[in-house]
Write a protein that binds this DNA or RNA. Structure first.
Lengths: 201, 201
DNA sequence: AAGAAAAATGAACATCGTTCGGAATTGGAG
DNA sequence: CTCCAATTCCGAACGATGTTCATTTTTCTT
């Protein structure tokens, strides 16, 4: 690799690291191009030689967050299976959201507008999380068709995410932080009990 | 009421109406102080004599959205009760989010930072929605203590919200819009089946 | 080693939310 | 009705933002 690409990669790395640190510290809404370039030790304009724009940089920082989150979730389910894995995933998700709140929040900022232009590697980072949920679901014997498994994974991930997001972002609608994990446990207990009861509607 | 307060109220009304229309049209992220004052037929600075800032105006527009949403939900549950009401609430919520997407999105923009300064009337607007969920839950005979009812209402509201939000904001994680309501039905079926099965853990 | 290509720089630009001093409008006293 | 103090309205101005661009500096090729 020539010195050209080396420096380019070093700059991108420095910017992503600086962005991740600043997002964790002050939140993505307060991340400014001037702050992040200053923290990375480059000029303001250099941001736009390394990334398309500030959102693109945030997207790359998010990819790093997604990796951290996935590793957390994998660790949480290393010694469990089936329903226990589902519970462990939900708890680990809530803990990550609480402990790395600003980084986690940045994962869900993108509006519908330019949804088609979201890169595939970013979508894949999210799908990796869904795969973990689907894996746990697959270990629970259900009378549902296997095709529905991915859809269930999306629903349960979104449901747990909703409870966590409401608790952390809109406490006057969601649960107080102190009871969040207990309420997630209760929700999952009810879901799993419902899953095991065949032919409901 | 003197002419002073009359004009003041008329200005506030015009600004809220203009803000609601603009949010519905372009989304709260693209709402600018210049656009909304121009649409309301007043000067740029007048916004700050009628409201504390742009966020305060959005908050008042949100209050109007909350009223519309609550009326929709009430209509949806007028002829139902218990589990059927829960299902009707969730469907009506999803429909509202889809049809009035930008207005609905604006309801959940506020970050944690200055959460204490959110006015009570705004919190009450959200609580009115929770009350509808709790009312439907109360009609289902459960073996849970009554104290847990409000907590369950928060969980189920947040869970359905999460599924809807993922579908509309992050389709690569949530459900495609075409199957959203069917998946919400499936989620609620599972939840209700789990609720009716006593002593699960 | 020198010229060509690329990248880094930071001043400049457009746009944003918000402020502020002067102009217009309102309410009450004579 | 008239006038003046008080209030409200106005839009130019301010500071901060994301992004661009001409210039300088660095890197690659021959």
């Amino acid at each position: 690799m020539g010195r050209r690409e080396e420096k380019r990669e070093a700059l991108r790395e420095a910017l992503i690291t600086a962005a991740t640190g600043l997002i964790e510290a002050v939140g993505h809404a307060h991340l400014t191009a001037r702050d992040v370039t200053s923290a990375a030790g480059c000029a303001l304009g250099s941001l736009y030689t390394a990334f398309a724009d500030l959102d693109d940089l945030i997207l790359h920082a998010n990819a790093r967050t997604l990796t951290m989150l996935r590793e957390d979730l994998e660790r949480a389910t290393a010694a469990t299976e089936g329903a226990a894995s589902l519970r462990a995933l939900a708890r680990a998700y809530a803990r990550f959201a609480r402990q790395r709140n600003h980084l986690w929040s940045a994962l869900f900022i993108y509006a519908m507008e330019d949804l088609e232009r979201i890169p595939a590697w970013y979508v894949n980072g999210h799908h990796a999380l869904l795969t973990l949920v689907a894996g746990a679901l697959a270990e629970i014997p259900l009378d549902e068709p296997a095709e529905a498994l991915e859809a269930r994974a999306r629903s349960y991930f979104a449901a747990v995410h909703g409870v966590v997001a409401m608790s952390l972002h809109s406490p006057f609608v969601g649960h107080p932080e102190a009871v969040l994990e207990a309420e997630i446990d209760a929700l999952l207990d009810t879901l799993i009990a419902g899953l095991r009861q065949p032919g409901t509607v």
